[in-house]
Design a protein around this nucleic acid. Structure first.
Lengths: 192, 192
DNA sequence: GATTTTTCCTGTCATATGACAGGAAATTAA
DNA sequence: TTAATTTCCTGTCATATGACAGGAAAAATC
């Protein structure tokens, strides 16, 4: 059991070694292959995953039925649909694997018990959500503050694996532009 | 003490009447006037507010020093900067009153004790954060899915008070457009 | 109530991005 | 390996929005 992996994710001063052991033991290792569906529009999330290797993509459908990529979940990150999982309602998102990989799954019920039992986990969870909210807001701001080119360059810098592992069209919708436009941007950058 | 007001905000099946009383008693009524600063870039949030009446505006500065309105906090809503309050770090946001009004303040420390004591409050808090995260994501999607006109019309429909109580230029930056552009949109709509 | 400041509107011009379509390249399936 | 599918690039044309500037209107201040 790779403790460091869990440590790096459940990383909070109030989570003791014993707490961590408790938490780890509720996770179950799974292997997944490209195309595996983790969550589907209309269903309710009943678990979340720590990604050890591989890349997942979250997306929604807009009014015209087009897929819009809302997020990528990569190595050492959590793949979770918070709204559905914590409000116990159907999701509007889809989560699908873009690559093969390994993840650790924890059921809602298990998390729930740990959450109310371990103060450190509550603090960790709240801080984690705060960070998510912060990034989400930042994304909104970036979309109308930075050019598409800047956003793309930032993504390359911050999460280079995504560009390597995901079809470019998904990156485009994640950046809020068409694949046409991203294609032009990439051409532009090449010539620099 | 207006219990219904608190009830409508701290609304969760696991929060009992007694819990609610406990929670309410940690809030302190304040009156504020237009221009009152609730939070400032670089400082740390140490409390949050339930707005009984009036309208607050949250904004950040972009790289060129322009103000970008990130949110409005109106009646029966919570004015909070989650990142700073729960991660105990300095904020990058500013929150300022656009009107006079009345709010109920609760200190971080008080909330903290209630949070770890009352299971229902934890569930409520987590659900509340989930909803925030959902709206935030939705905003990102709307920005590149809907036209500026649609976003403006939706805002009028969903939060009409904002248009009445806020200078239009703040609405513009909230919508991710310039005031020039919003002005044109308003003209367009008038003639329909 | 006069002056200053802020807010809002409008004109012109520039430009980033979208829509659509066709073909090349790469990946997947048979 | 060949065929089918998906992905990616590129061209043309249209358009929503931005940048900038000036003036009218409204609000705040004295």
């Amino acid at each position: 059991m790779n403790v460091d992996f869990f440590q790096s994710i459940y990383n909070h001063p109030l989570i003791s070694k014993i707490d961590l052991k408790d938490i780890i033991s509720e996770h179950q290792k799974i292997r997944f292959s490209k195309g595996t569906v983790f969550l589907e529009n209309g269903k309710m999330a009943n678990e979340y995953y720590l990604i050890e290797s591989g890349l997942l993509r979250a997306f929604v459908h807009d009014l015209n039925g087009n897929e819009i990529t809302t997020d990528f979940h990569g190595e050492n990150e959590i793949s979770i649909e918070v709204s559905s999982l914590f409000q116990r309602i159907p999701t509007n998102e889809n989560i699908v694997a873009l690559t093969n990989g390994v993840a650790w799954k924890i059921e809602f019920q298990s998390f729930q018990e740990l959450f109310h039992k371990i103060e450190g986990l509550r603090e960790w969870g709240r801080a984690w959500m705060s960070k998510q909210l912060f990034s989400s807001k930042q994304r909104s701001i970036d979309i109308h503050t930075k050019s598409a080119t800047e956003r793309y360059l930032n993504l390359i810098k911050d999460k280079p694996k995504i560009i390597q592992q995901s079809p470019i069209k998904h990156v485009a919708s994640y950046l809020g532009i068409t694949d046409t436009s991203l294609s032009r941007i990439r051409k532009e950058i090449r010539s620099d």
